[in-house]
């Protein structure tokens, strides 16, 4: 780790000012990606702006027909939230298979989304549930938020404050783990909401999380595993590495989507 300046603001406004002041500042949420990268000297921010003391960024609440999760809410708190378990059990399940106990006890939803790792679990839920990312500046629809590998719509001085999930009729998540990292080799989140069905895939796409429109169309009529039986996802654009070929990943999307549908609640 290289030397850096450590700041611990009390408000979002103060945090934004610190970001503006230093060109090389990085926000620290749960630190489950940033800190290992810093220890390996792969990241070297000049300033760390620790959000842990910013008031009002944590917690899960129901707001009308939405579940609102504060950006600094730890994975474990989403997993254990009675409200999440009742309203979006697929989301509680997703968090229960995310990382390991250490990661779940430190990592946060906001940190995960801002990082947008192509194999992370949360982006699949946010995209499939058609959630809205609320920042200090604006509300960003899920479809506009994810911009590619580790890329998001967030501006340099923009901070995620909360994520708003419309409660779906039904949703399910199936993850197939990378045998080494235990990240998603492929993860598929299916959801049936008031605007129809959505299918989001993490782990497989060369440009990060993506939707499978053909499946969505079929599921709009019949939200069941049977409805997508004949649909094959092309291997083009899929990640190929020593853990799985592009063809394998494309194939897994179908398998996992069907299983997620069968298990959807």
């Amino acid at each position: 780790m290289y030397a850096f300046t450590y700041e611990r603001p009390k408000s979002v406004e103060e945090a934004v000012n610190l970001l503006k002041k230093s060109g090389e500042a990085k926000l620290l949420a749960g630190g489950q990606t940033l800190l290992p990268a810093m220890k390996l000297r792969l990241a070297s921010p000049g300033t760390i702006v620790d959000l842990s003391k910013v008031a009002g960024l944590s917690g899960v609440k129901r707001d009308g027909n939405d579940i609102v999760i504060g950006a600094m809410t730890k994975h474990v708190d989403v997993m254990n939230s009675a409200e999440v378990q009742k309203s979006i059990p697929a989301l509680a399940h997703l968090v229960s298979v995310l990382g390991d106990p250490a990661v779940r006890n430190r990592g946060t939803i906001g940190g995960s989304l801002a990082n947008n790792d192509p194999s992370a679990d949360y982006p699949a839920a946010v995209l499939a549930l058609n959630a809205t990312v609320q920042t200090n500046k604006r509300k960003i629809a899920a479809d506009d938020f994810f911009k590619g590998l580790f890329e998001t719509a967030l501006a340099g001085d923009e901070i995620i404050e909360a994520v708003r999930f419309p409660v779906p009729e039904k949703a399910g998540y199936e993850k197939f783990r990378n045998p080494a990292s235990r990240f998603a080799l492929v993860g598929v989140f299916v959801a049936k909401g008031k605007d129809g069905a959505r299918v989001a895939v993490t782990g497989a796409g060369e440009s990060g999380v993506f939707r499978v429109k053909e499946m969505e169309a079929a599921l709009g009529k019949d939200f069941s595993a049977k409805a997508i039986e004949g649909i094959k996802v092309p291997a083009k654009g899929m990640i190929a590495d020593l853990h799985g070929t592009a063809e394998y990943r494309a194939h897994l999307i179908g398998v996992l989507a069907r299983r997620a549908l069968a298990a959807a609640k």
């Binding site: 197939f176 045998p179 080799l185 853990h243 799985g244 070929t245 394998y248």
Partner: peptide, 8 residues
Amino acid sequence: ATPSTVWK
């Protein structure tokens, strides 16, 4: 014999 290999 990873899942990818065994699947194939």
